[in-house]
Nucleic acid binder design. Structure first.
Lengths: 227, 227
DNA sequence: TGAGTAAAGGTGCAAATGACTAGAACAGAT
DNA sequence: ATCTGTTCTAGTCATTTGCACCTTTACTCA
C-alpha cells in the first residue's frame, strides 16, 4: 500500500479590536466561518483553504482570508504547523496556521454574513477540529509579541492618539497601564513619532496625533525568507 | 487539470557544542547528510524525510533524525514551515522544519560516516535547496531563545559547573559574559539548583556542580498542543 | 610551603520601572 | 464670560535591575 502524503491547508487567526459600548473597554474579536461540509458541518471554524501550486504559504493564507472574509490584514505572520494524526476525523490534514491583525476600520468594512461572524476571542463557542486550541496559542503569541515589538500599531490606522495606543495595550495585555508612564515609554521609542496635528471633537483637551515611523518594522522576525 | 497538493516533508536543524582545541572556545556544530538523488545530488542537506500517516510532525522529525544521524535530541521544537514555490526545482515541496539541541556526549556517540558529517554552524558550504537560509534562521531563534529561557542546559549533561554553563551561553551569544554577574543571575533562578558535589581535578578551587530542576520546562512555548 | 588559578562573594553606579502628584489645556455647559 | 470636568503633560521619588569592577577564598601543582 502506498502511503499517501497528508492533505495540506492553511488557516488564519485574525484579530481586531472592537468596542462594544461607548465607555466599555475594547476587547479582541476574530472572524469565523461556518462550515458547510462534514466533518464538523455547521460548526464555526477558522478561515482557510488549500494551497495553490503557484502561491507561497503566506500568499495562500492572505488569499483564503480575502476570499472568505474580505479582509486584508495589516500584519500577517506564520503561527505554527499543526499536524497531529487525529486532529481531523477520517483524513490526515496538516494545517499551516497564520495569525494576523487588522485595523478596526478595515474590520468594520468587511460585512458580516450568514456564514461569517465576529466572536469575542475570550468567549468562543466550540469550534471545529482543534481550532479552539489554535486560537489559544495565537492569543498567547499575540500577548507575548506585544511586549517586545511594536505590532500594537497594526490595530490602528495611520494616525492615532496615545490614549488609543494605550487602549490597545490594555485590551491585549488585560491590565490597565499608567498613562503617564506609558507616555514616557513611547516617547523614548524612535519608532513612534509625534505629529503637529491634534484630534478635536472630544469634550476635553485635544490630544496630539502620533504616527508610526515607517522605517521600522512592526516586529523583528529575524532572517526569515521574505515570503 | 487537477491541482495536486504540495509534497510534504520534515527536516531538522540540530545543534551541538564542540570544542576543537583544549583551550579554544566551544562553537556550534550541526550534522548534515549528503544527498544522493537529484536535485542537488552530492550537496549537503539537513536531515529529514517524509511524514508517515501514523505519526505527528514532531515524531516524524525525531524519527527521520534518528534514522539518518542516530541522534536523539534533548530539545526539539518546531522552527517554521517553508513553502515558497521555487524552493525545490521541479516539484513543489513544503518543508516543516524543526530545530533541536543535543548534548555533547550524545553527539560524540553518533559516529560520522561517508554520508553524515558535522560542520561548524558559522562556516557552512553551499547546501541543497534553501537550507543555508534555514540554518541562519534556526541560529537566530536559538540565540533569541537563549536570552529568555533555560534551553542552554540541553547542551550539557546531568550535572555541570557554572563555568560550563557560561561557556554555552558565550558560544551561542558570541560574546564573553562576566562570571560574577552570570553567577548571580543563575542563582536568582529557581530552575537551576546547586548540589553538594564539586568537580575536582582542575588546578584551582574545585567548582560546585549544579543540576537542572526537572520540575521546570526548558522553555515556555505557551499552550501548544503537546504533540 | 608558596605560586598560580579560577571560584565565590561583595560594592557601587546608572538606567529602567512603577506609584504617585500636580498643573495646563481644552470643550461644553451654565 | 466663567465654571467644570476630563485628559494631556510634566515632574518627583523610591525601588528594582543591569552592569562593571574589586576582593577574598580554596584548591592543585611544583
Amino acid at each position: 500500500m502506498l502511503s499517501t502524503s497528508p492533505q495540506l491547508a492553511v488557516s488564519t487567526v485574525i484579530f481586531a479590536l472592537r468596542k462594544t459600548g461607548a465607555e466599555s473597554p475594547a476587547t479582541l474579536w476574530l472572524p469565523l466561518v461556518r462550515r458547510i461540509r462534514e466533518p464538523f458541518g455547521g460548526r464555526w471554524a477558522l478561515p482557510g483553504g488549500p494551497i495553490r501550486a503557484s502561491e507561497s504559504l503566506a500568499d495562500a493564507a492572505g488569499r483564503n482570508l480575502l476570499e472568505t472574509t474580505a479582509l486584508t490584514p495589516q500584519y500577517l505572520e506564520q503561527l505554527y504547523a499543526f499536524g497531529t494524526v487525529e486532529r481531523s476525523p477520517g483524513t490526515r490534514v496538516v494545517s499551516i496556521v497564520y495569525w494576523a491583525l487588522v485595523e478596526a476600520e478595515e474590520a468594520e468594512r468587511a460585512a458580516e454574513g450568514e456564514n461569517v461572524r465576529w466572536f469575542p476571542a475570550d468567549d468562543l463557542p466550540e469550534l471545529a477540529f482543534d481550532h479552539n486550541a489554535i486560537v489559544d496559542y495565537a492569543l498567547w503569541r499575540l500577548r507575548n509579541k506585544m511586549e517586545y515589538s511594536r505590532i500594537a500599531h497594526a490595530f490602528l490606522g495611520e494616525m492615532f492618539t496615545l490614549a488609543q495606543l494605550r487602549e490597545v495595550y490594555e485590551a491585549v495585555l488585560g491590565r490597565p497601564l499608567d498613562p503617564a508612564n506609558f507616555r514616557r515609554q513611547i516617547e523614548a521609542t524612535k519608532s513612534i513619532v509625534a505629529t503637529e496635528e491634534r484630534q478635536s471633537g472630544g469634550r476635553h483637551r485635544p490630544p496630539r496625533l502620533f504616527r508610526y515611523n515607517e522605517s521600522f518594522d512592526l516586529a523583528d522576525n529575524g532572517p526569515l525568507p521574505h515570503a
